[in-house]
Design a binder for these strands. Sequence first.
RNA 1: GGCCGAGUGGCAGAGUGGUGAUGCAGCGGACUGCAAAUCCGUGUACGUCGGUUCAAUUCCGGCCUCGGCCUCCA
Length: 459
Amino acid sequence: MSLNLYNTLTRSKDVFTPLRPDRVTVYVCGPTVYNHAHIGNARPAVVFDVLVRLLRTRHDRVIFARNVTDVDDKINAAAKATGQPISAITEKYATIYRSDMAALGVAAPDVEPHATAHIPQIIALIERLIASGHAYTAEGHVLFNVPAFAAYGKLSGRDRDDMIAGARVDVAPYKKDPADFVLWKPSTDDLPGWPSPWGRGRPGWHIECSAMIATHLGETIDIHGGGNDLIFPHHENELAQSACAHHGAPLAGVWMHNGFLTMDKEKMSKSLGNIVTVHELLTRAPGEAIRWALLSAHYRQPLDWSDDVLAQAKRTLDRFYLALDQVKGITATPTNAPNAMIAALDDDLNTPKAAAEIAALVKALNGATTDAEKARLKGEVLAAGKLLGILQQEPSQWLTAAAPDTNVDAGEIERLIAARIAARKAKDFKEADRIRDQIAAMGVVIEDRADGTRWRLAS
RNA sequence: GGCCGAGUGGCAGAGUGGUGAUGCAGCGGACUGCAAAUCCGUGUACGUCGGUUCAAUUCCGGCCUCGGCCUCCA
């Protein structure tokens, strides 16, 4: 069994082989922190979290970096609009991002580099590019000279002639080539800036990732990930800069890109306004349900986000947790995730297939008759869930408190249940049913089981 | 216009050259005082037109529709 990953660069699923036997390096483009992350922004975080979990089952040392871009024109605009200092904006939203992602079960990255903490490295990288003839200065800017890198366009599959033909109209006059892009640009006094050999200025969009990758992970990393829309120009430019600064060493072996979330089939984007923030979703659904909804489609496929998708994910988890609740008195046999689960994820992170495998395990668990069987299957369900970042809560916790903003009074429910039990004992089923209806009206479902009456929140 | 991706049963969503995805919903049954949960059973599904093949949802080509990136226009 080996891990196969779809590589945007080769446009095929390839067997993943680490570049070095002693470690695996992964870098994912993180947020630009100028406002709340929307659920589409959460998709790569969750997807690559699963990838890292899978890698860690095989490799002792996985170094996972996810950056925070804290210098950007949108941040400057947000600061200006709110009258706050830039650092207040970036710190606030970086903190919110971290807690939102944690709520989705996304483990903190091993390294979380900030662009503004790497200005010297960025400047050094740009100097190397100038020295090697891949970049030049013009009117206070430093630009990367695209014709100096023959392989430019390979990642995004773009024909350079077409790009130039299209770019001809509004190309900045100081560019040597229309496709050239900015590495460093001058800052006015009211904008963030750092002293540099080219005057006070700030980095261009793509260079910070190249610098941070080189600083923390090395010249060539194993896996570079991000959203589909980063392929061009962001990753194409990163790839070019890094290769040219490092004597042609490729930036990454595997390039992975997740597909988009849509709302009514249209790309979710802040400019269109058709967004729902993770922050808001967390007030009305458990993070685990949001996570499972994001994993319900294969990561490269589009996923049309809706309340229904979320509700279905919640219900699926209810079913899993109900099964675990049935065997809460049985100690799970510790084990690794079943082979079928691993095989599903090994196939380019096929999480829907993995979901089917969990469903099969849960069905087997529900049908198990001996304690030994139950212990074994419970262990397998828990191990499978761990790999996907789900099912690690106490089942009773999930079933009775899963929705954050419900205000069900557990004491009141218990009291009503006791009254109903008394009515049933007295064979007063009419009264028992009346009480059950009363409980149902509170959004609570009850079950009479061999070992007593249980309740949970309705889906 | 260039490039990329997608069109699967009521819904979500995998996958495959010839047998079952899976989940939700529905229907029937078992269980239950009745339910719920669970289990069992249950569905002429693969945009369209051609081609290759003994056999295509799966391969090839055309077309249609939708989405994305870039670009153009405004």
